[in-house]
Nucleic acid binder design. Sequence first.
DNA 1: ACAAAAGTGTTGTAATTACACCCATGT
DNA 2: ACATGGGTGTAATTACAACACTTTTGT
Lengths: 241, 241
Amino acid sequence: MTARPRDHATLRLTADLAILTVRDGQLQVLLVQRGNEPYRGRWALPGGFVREDEDPDAAAARELAEETGLDGTALHLEQVAVFGTPGRDPRGRVVTVAYLAIAPDLPLPVAGSDASGACWQPVDQALGTLAFDHNDILRTCLERARQALEYTTLATAFCADAFTIGELRTVYEVVWGMPVDTRNFHRKVTKTAGFLVPLDAKRTSEVGRPAALYRRGPATTLYPPMLRSTVDYDEPSASST
Amino acid sequence: MTARPRDHATLRLTADLAILTVRDGQLQVLLVQRGNEPYRGRWALPGGFVREDEDPDAAAARELAEETGLDGTALHLEQVAVFGTPGRDPRGRVVTVAYLAIAPDLPLPVAGSDASGACWQPVDQALGTLAFDHNDILRTCLERARQALEYTTLATAFCADAFTIGELRTVYEVVWGMPVDTRNFHRKVTKTAGFLVPLDAKRTSEVGRPAALYRRGPATTLYPPMLRSTVDYDEPSASST
DNA sequence: ACAAAAGTGTTGTAATTACACCCATGT
DNA sequence: ACATGGGTGTAATTACAACACTTTTGT
């Protein structure tokens, strides 16, 4: 309990975001290009320092709003994990809180970003190329997102205010990377109370029968869950095994 | 990207632990009594500062070993959430990483603790009385534990090396706070591949038929999950709604 | 008419629930 | 003998996977 000198090293805290969306039938993540050393010119997850009188969650919401140009509170944002291995940032002792954010397919090419460049990239393409330990962070956030689709109504966060069941199904297929039976999916989501609220409108696309439009319902959890055929749920563990 | 003065406030990081166990048919948590201001004399979750060249996960494992007197790597330990609201600690800017740890019913009354006192307390009794924001932290960890019992084999972490199915069932009943059908539970856990490994021994208690002994199997996930009748799964969200 | 996507029906199977019932031990 | 907890059998119910099939639009 007595504070010995090395017992309370001061450090800096950042909030890094994995902002995911579905664009062009792919799962994409918002990246910024680093303008300074280290990793100058490399792509990284957007993020920034937590300010002196700021809650980490608030810092994440602020970053999210800055990067997307949208009101961050309108988007899904959740804490995922802390990454604090010494040496993970060459500039010194920096611990980061990783956040998962979900955005609908934004029309804008991301304005107002404070980095030298920002763009959406397919996660498959981004994984393995990122600066710092951001590949690990992205992988962890991806796993969280895949899991959340099973047990929660998170998938609707990928959709605009009004969406069709086909669009929602595409979210599942893209995030999980596997096909989902259209017929069973339709029944499942329409019969889960509170998942979808039907609207009195239809959307007619280029081809095919017009689809009914829905908006998000009040439910946040899915019971029974929407299960993937191949199950590989793993509880995040901090044990040093 | 340019580092303005207030953009990288330095702060101190702690790791706080909710160490849970089942004792006397109750879910209990390990608490320490604070020896210094603030909250002197109040009970709090064990924890401590993350050292200068230490990973937060390693700090948690170290604290766990100190408090329980056991090798921390033998116990289940997982990151749960970050609590960093400014003002949560009157001593200054302190952000904490909350960890959930699970221990079997330890025979020792916790030796070697560095706080002025340490003891197991029923969580029902502890909730609402703790120092700092530890009530919130404990509640969050509890919810995580309840959830993990559904989808993972975490319950075995509450048991000693060898245990009976009845003991395992008690864990579920105590953590969930609801009765579990003995017959169906037995079938469920014995038919889930990799959950339990039968031992060639039986334990005969004071009364009743001797029960077969088992040890943990290699499985970490439960499929299909062990579902509670009343479902209230809620994904932790950091959105400032 | 045809292609394409939306949406409904049906059937076999897996899993859960809610029981009744038997087994092995100490007193 | 009987109480107590361990363990098995069975039937009704629910949910799901895998299909065939119909509907509604644009070309």
